[in-house]
Each structure stands twice: as C-alpha cells, then as structure tokens.
Design a protein around this nucleic acid. Structure first.
Lengths: 347, 347
DNA sequence: GATGAATCTGCAATCGATTGCAGAATAAAA
DNA sequence: TTTTATTCTGCAATCGATTGCAGATTCATC
C-alpha cells in the first residue's frame, strides 16, 4: 500500500468485458428504459465489482453543467459569512450540488479575478456578497452575459438588475432604535460604517426614521462614521463623552464597535444601560457572553444562505424563461439583552 | 438586458475567423514557442475582442485534473474550522486552486457520500477532518486506491497510512496543566470529550503526564467524561462541587464546557481563579470577552489550514514518486488570561 | 540552384460520458 | 411464411481543449 496508482475504470472497460459498447453501458447505468433488464443487471454487477465511478468532469463537459455553485464572500472567518455558507451548503447538498468557496478579502481585484475563473464553466451559478472595496461592477455584468446565474446576498450593488437576498437593515435599525426610545433614551448616537455600502446606508436610514417616528430630531453630531471595529468603537465613545449633553444610548451598525464601546464605557465606570444603553447589529456569538450581555439585531444568517441557494437553483433550472430579477428581504430580529434593558439587573 | 443568452466563444470560433485551426489557437493562447509572434498577436487580440474564456471543464478533462481541492469538515459554523478553511484557501488561491467545502455534520454516512462524489475527478485532492461519528474508514481507503491525494487535519484516524497535520494536543494539555500547577493548584479536574477521538485522548494523556511530572497523583474522580458543551460544563461543575475536597482548578478540553463552567461558578459565587481556576482549549473568540477572561490553548487554526494545503500540493505535484506519509505536528500556544492567573486583578 | 536547418501549422486522436438515429433482433399478428 | 410492431443495441458525433507527429514554409548555407 506504499505506492499509489490510479485505478481508472471507464464505461469502455465495462463495455469491453461485456462485449457491448459504451453507449449501452452508459444507458444501463442511467436505467434507460430501452435497455434490457438482463443487460442492466450485468452492467450494474460488473460496475460494482470493478468499483466503477463515473468521471465527473467528462459528464459535466457533455452535459454542459457540473452541479457546482460558487460563493464569493469577503472572508470566511467571520461568523456571519460562515453561517450563511452553512445555510447555502445545506440547500446545495440536498440538491446534489457542491459549493466552491472563494474569499475576496474585500478587494475588488481579487473579486474580479475570482469571478472570472469561476464563470468559465467551473460553476453553474454564483452567489456573491460584494467586496466593500468594489466600485466597478463590470465583472458581474460579464457574468450575466455569460449566462451564469448570479445572486447577491447581504451586500448588493444597486446598479445592476440581478436577484438579491437581503435582510431588512432598515427595519432592523428601526426596531433597535425604537426599542431604545421605549427604554427612555432620547439622545441616541449611531455608529455607522461606510455609507456608500448599502447595508450601512439602510441602517442609518432606519435609525433616522425611528427617531422621526418618535418625534426626536436627528442630530448630526451623534453620527459617528466609519466605526465598525472594536478599536474605533472605543474611540467613538471618547468623542461621545465630550459632547454636551452626553448621549444616553448608542445604536451601533456593528457588534464589533458595540463591543469596543461597552468595554470603553465600563472602563470609565459608566453604568450600562442606565447611563448609556447600547444595541449592536449582527448578534455575534460573543454578544450573549459579554457582560453586560449585548443587545443586538440578529440577521438570521443561516436563512440568508438557504434563501440565496434556493433562489439560485430556481434560476439555474429556469434558464429557458425570460429573466426576472427577484428580491428577497428577510426580517431581522431584535435580541434584547442587558445593555439596553433598563431596570432589570444582570442575573 | 432582460433576456440572458449564453455567449459561448470557443477556440474553434477564433480559429474560424482567423482561417486557422483550433490547435494553433490553443497553442497561441498558451504562448507555445512554435507559434509565430504574428499569429499569437492575432489570436490574443481576437480572443480579447470576443471576450473568449477557456472552458474549464474541457481543459480539465483533457489534462486530467481540475485545479480544485475538496475539504471535508464536520461543520463550517465553528470558528476553528472556518479559520482552518481560511488558511487552506490562502494557500490554494496562491497556487491557482479552488476549494470545495463539504460538511459532514459528524455523520459517517454523509461523509462517505461526500468522499465518493468528490473523488470522481471533481477534485485533485481531499483534506479531511474526520467526522466524530465515523467508525469505518473504508471510504478513505477507496480514495487512496483511486490515487487521489488525501490529508487529514486536526482529527485523524490512526489506522491508515496517510499524511496528517495535527496540533500537539498532548503538549497543549501539558502546558495548560503545568501552568495551573505553577499557580498553586493541586487538585485539578479534567473535562474530556469522547476518549476514542484522538484529540481528546491526547489531551487527557497530556493532563495525566503533567500531573505525573509534578508528582501529583492522578485521581479518577476528577475526570469528567463527555463534557464538551456549555451545558455539560455547567453540570460537571455541579458534580465537582460535591466532591471532598472540592477541586481547585479545571482543565477543560473544550472552550464551550469551560464557558459553561465559568458561568456556573459565577452563579455560585465561587471566586475565579482563586477558589477555582479554569483553562479551556481552542481559544474561541469569546474567550477574551468572557469575564473573567478565559485562559485557553490556542490551536493556530489558520496555520493548520495552511500547512495542510501545502502538504496536499506537495502530494499532488509529487504523484510520480513512491508515497511516504508525512505527519506535521504544530505547536499550540497557551494564552494565559484571568481565569487562571492568580493574584492579578481583572483590569 | 540545391540541400539542410529552422520555424510554423494542421491533422487527427484523445480525455470519458452522452445521445440522436439507424438498424438488428425478437415477438406478435396476418 | 410474411408483415408489422416491439424491444434492444451500436455507430458515430458531440462537448472544448490539448498534443504527438507529420507536413509545409521560409531562410540560410554551400
């Protein structure tokens, strides 16, 4: 067992041993109605005996598709994306498809490169969460021209006519901010990401709308831009504390900056949530572990993946009909924990 | 742009327009030395103009490989595995390979199924972290017979002659337990997983060895078996507290059970680390966020992925030579935090 | 002008499975 | 026995790119 040689049994080998042809063997293996039971039995038995396995590449070439879909994400070691992939893989495995994972690391060049190698027959469809560094979306137009189904999830460009699966960021933000207002907060700061990225833009709009709906005026000073990391969250807290009056809540578009904020607030002995309430976004696994536990908007990431995968299979199987872009908007869920629930002690 | 038609430019199309043949076009595209500069230029220009993209499937069939490797893991939404995949993907992308991800959900049947579909030419090599439910490893022997390179990482069966990338669980456990002993603990409990799984067996051995090396007798009562989840960790704490004397430390083979233990201990107002110190294993992202922050053994997961990927490319490119199984053992790192560092206040 | 060398191209087979169509073999009906 | 219907099989092309080998063309040398 120390030298490994390729055993390559093909339908021709089977045909030869049975004094028949590859066509017949091929049909027998597919249980084609015009092949006799006797022949099917013989083929199946010999195939089993020789432990024949069909060559996937060859049949893909002939059939024109390879039962594989590609997924392009910024990075996999982020909880949101790995759980989206979990959802995609569930649906794909069910449908007999495999999933090819590629990371763009938020770089447009990498993303472009990935898309180009994927669409040359390697995959039958592509699911993308666009890189934040991507300005030019021509590579996606290529994909469409090639006739390869394309779906965006989570992060999607607006200037392109494709199907999308998104969570309702506006609603999530609106729920979070409304909740803070119900808790008595009136002076609510917002940590935002780059506003040219749709998810952050929508969260910002949801924030503003919730304020307006409760008759609270929007205050420019309370918007902290490009605050999505833990460090920047801590810095932003410093800036907030210099305001007069000091805000009484933070709605952060990211759990990471919310985390940084909570740590910074604790360091300054500011009581959470009574002096300053905090709600994050994404419901990262650590949200429940942080003390006080972090309220956050859950994105139902696994369902995002499942929905996106289902959508792409629809488009793959539907390729004859004229294309109509669909948009699925999933409802997020506000998870209320200790950083925002006043008058309730930590247990 | 509402109807999507497949544009399928092949080398034959280019050849026809240039009054030459597919062979010449193929060679021109590969910059073959025996093609004239003029012809190369013409081909390249026309290819560009028609936005020709080589058909990946066709060239794979002919070349006998498809620049794809498969990864089989129990599940992707676990930090360890997603970061291993990050490492694999880094190396693979560098080498011009794509990565196919499959989840076994710790089921032998699923794993077997995955392996069988992968090795039929779909991938050029397979990286596996074996499902905990897998007893029969015949499907892997098939893989070897097929001549498809195979590497195990993290979890590997012992009864098979293949290359492996593992972290030194024995050493990691030894470091953790020695550290607890240095902190003055003498009565150290151990939360273990199923001992037929190598990683848990080795952690257990490392635990025992560290005790022995410090002249501490191993006590059967302090071994809590099958404790790898948060809930079971909390339960195990209950049992420990009924012992006499009560242990003064826990070395957990999993961060999840360590987490459960810390929460349970806090609920009972047992002071960590002075009354009970805790060290976990895996350095999950929440370890640093927990209060008190959890000491844990970091597995350098990204490096595991990188090492495994490098190894499989060696085997793929080396297929001529007689096979020699390699074993890479990575050194883990003990991260000392507040659950085990006595006499240091939490900041 | 002839021979040899050097440089390009094209033919045709190949990778392995699939499939339309023709045709063989068998059974049923006349 | 002949005709018609029915049931199986096989031939050959196809998917698109690659490659060994032969042949063609150009150029240099004697």
């Amino acid at each position: 067992m120390n030298n490994r040689k390729k055993t390559k049994v093909t339908i021709h080998d089977i045909a030869k041993q049975l004094n028949t042809t590859a066509s017949t063997v091929s049909r027998a293996l597919q249980d084609h109605p015009r092949i006799s039971q006797a022949m099917k039995k013989a083929v199946l038995e010999l195939a089993e005996k020789l432990s024949y396995q069909p060559n996937f590449i060859a049949s893909s070439l002939r059939k024109g598709h390879g039962n594989t879909i590609g997924v392009v994400i910024p990075r996999i070691d982020r909880n949101f994306f790995s759980s989206v992939i979990g959802g995609i893989e569930d649906v794909a495995a069910e449908a007999g498809y495999n999933v090819l994972i590629c990371q763009s690391y938020d770089s447009e060049a990498k993303e472009k490169n990935i898309i180009e190698t994927l669409i040359n027959g390697k995959v039958d469809g592509v699911l993308v969460s666009i890189a934040s560094g991507t300005a030019d979306i021509n590579h996606f137009k290529q994909t469409i021209l090639k006739g390869v189904p394309l779906i965006f999830f989570d992060r999607a460009p607006s200037e392109i006519n494709v199907s999308k699966v998104e969570i309702d960021d506006f609603l999530g933000a609106h729920m979070a901010v409304s909740h803070l207002i119900e808790q008595g907060c009136r002076n609510i700061a917002h940590f935002s990401g780059p506003l040219n990225v749709s998810i952050y833009a929508n969260r910002f709009l949801g924030y503003k709308a919730a304020l307006a709906d409760h008759g609270i005026e929007y205050n420019d000073q309370l918007l902290m831009q490009e605050v999505v990391t833990s460090d920047s969250g801590a810095d932003a807290v410093d800036r907030l504390l210099r305001l007069n009056p000091i805000p009484d809540a933070i709605f952060s578009a990211s759990d990471f900056s919310a985390l940084g904020a909570v740590i910074a607030l604790k360091k300054r002995n500011i009581v959470i949530p009574n002096e300053m309430a905090v709600v994050g976004f994404a419901n990262e696994p650590y949200a429940s572990i942080l003390e006080p536990s972090l309220s956050s908007v859950d994105q139902h990431s696994r369902e995002v993946g499942q929905a996106a995968a289902k959508l792409i299979f629809e488009e793959i199987n539907d390729s004859g009909n004229p294309f109509v872009a669909k948009r699925i908007l999933l409802t997020p869920e506000l998870i209320i924990r200790c950083t925002s629930k006043k008058n309730i002690k930590e247990k």
